[in-house]
Amino acid sequence: MTECPRSFGHIDTWVFDLDNTLYPHHVNLWQQVDARIGEFVSNWLKVDAQEARRIQKDYYRRYGTTMRGMMTEHGVHADDFLAYVHKIDHSPLEPNPAMGAAIEQLPGRKLILTNGSVDHVGAVLSRLGIAGHFHGVFDIIAAELTPKPARETYDKFVRLHDVDPTRSAMFEDLARNLVVPHELGMTTVLVVPDGTKEVVREDWELAGRGDPHVDHVTDDLTGFLQRLVAA
């Protein structure tokens, strides 16, 4: 017997991933970061772009982030990696006042949980015009450089921000990053591309929408939040 998806009536903490969640997949801001990561790997390991790409994606899948793989396998310092890969053009992001208004009306706290850096979070939220709606950010530094989907990272987040998972909802663009939140008791929402424009993602990154740990799926986060507020 299939269980009913968890609902939102009891939620008092709203947890959001950043990249490809709070802005549309087709903006492809991550494509810029992705390219910078490839350049970093190529320069550090002195390999060509094709080999760097292979290593980058292998580490991303095995370690959760390419940075973690580069740290573990090659002694890279996180500060050097983050400073390089997040030096991107944020101008493709446009203000989203409708989403900001919906987030503001959600009852309770709103938090960011990301594998990116707090500086990157600040730049993205500023461009979207929604920075003032969040009560805290848990980034890769707060995670002590251990990225999602590691269980210990969610445990640290819950402790640091005094989160009751059974009264929380998590919004993410990668299904695998919702496994632990669901196990902890969170209501989970997978944010997927809307299908109107091409997105630059690996096939596995777009998988999992039918998995049992995904309670809800949306290709329109703003509309989804507006419907929650209205309800």
Rank of each mutant, 00 (worst) to 15 (best):
L128H: 02
A102K: 04
G223S: 13
H86R: 09
D79R: 14
L174E: 02
L93D: 00
P212F: 05
H86C: 01
V180N: 06
W30I: 14
L228T: 14
L111Y: 02
E39P: 00
V200N: 14
T166W: 00
V124M: 07
L22V: 02
Q56S: 13
K57L: 15
P95N: 04
E3S: 07
P92K: 07
P5Q: 11
K46H: 09
D48K: 13
A143V: 11
V214D: 11
R127D: 03
N28Y: 04
D79Q: 13
W44Y: 15
D215R: 10
Y84V: 07
K110S: 13
V41N: 13
T65A: 11
K110V: 08
R109S: 10
C4Q: 10
V118I: 09
D89N: 14
T146S: 12
V214K: 11
P92M: 06
A175T: 10
E3P: 07
D17I: 11
H216P: 15
H182T: 10
K87F: 11
Y23K: 03
M1Y: 13
F224S: 03
L184V: 06
T187W: 12
E205Y: 13
H26V: 02
R209E: 14
T218C: 11
F40D: 08
A102S: 05
T146M: 09
T146L: 13
H216Y: 12
L178E: 07
G132S: 00
D215V: 06
T187E: 08
S168W: 08
Y154P: 06
R159A: 14
A52C: 02
T153K: 06
D34T: 04
Q105R: 15
G116W: 08
G195R: 05
H77W: 04
L45T: 03
D155Y: 12
P181H: 01
V180Q: 12
D17E: 12
W204I: 05
Q50V: 12
A49M: 14
D58K: 13
M186G: 06
V229S: 05
P181V: 13
A131T: 01
M67F: 04
S91F: 00
D194M: 13
T187I: 10
D17Q: 03
P107W: 01
W30Y: 12
T218H: 12
Q32N: 10
A83V: 10
H216F: 05
A231P: 05
Y59V: 04
V191K: 04
Y84K: 09
P165N: 08
